[in-house]
């Protein structure tokens, strides 16, 4: 798993590539918590290049969503497709997150 970030205005775009499973999901959660500790509260998490996600990955995203909710922050997801979209659909996570095709689409709305 690789995490890349860029800043767009007051929004942090976090792009996650590779695999988000039991071993790697904690690194995503830690990275996000570090951004939040730096005072960032608006996130676009782009999963367009993510190949694989397990329930551990969903739990990490859920944990971050809870932290952001307490800080009145925002998290939206972009690029859900293939196997990753399938996991979000089965667990019905897809219906509770704002999702967009591309980060640019999300940025236009935030």
């Amino acid at each position: 798993m690789e995490i890349k970030t860029r800043e767009e205005r007051d929004v942090t775009v976090v792009s996650v590539t590779g695999r988000m499973g039991e071993l790697t999901a904690p690194a995503f959660e830690e990275a996000m918590k570090n951004f939040i500790a730096q005072g960032k509260t608006k996130f676009v998490v782009d999963l367009g290049e993510l190949e694989y996600i397990s329930s551990a990955g969903l739990r990490s995203i859920l944990a971050i969503t809870k932290v952001l909710k307490e800080k009145n922050g925002t998290i939206v997801l972009t690029g859900l497709s293939g196997a990753v979209r399938e996991v979000f659909a089965i667990t019905q996570f897809i219906s509770v997150f704002a999702t967009y095709d591309k980060p640019e689409d999300a940025l236009a709305e935030l």
């Binding site: 329930s55 969903l58 739990r59 859920l62 969503t65 809870k66 909710k69 667990t91 996570f93 509770v96």
Partner: peptide, 9 residues
């Protein structure tokens, strides 16, 4: 969702 228990997923 933020109150959902992760178990069972």
């Amino acid at each position: 969702i933020t109150n959902r228990e992760p178990g069972g997923m």
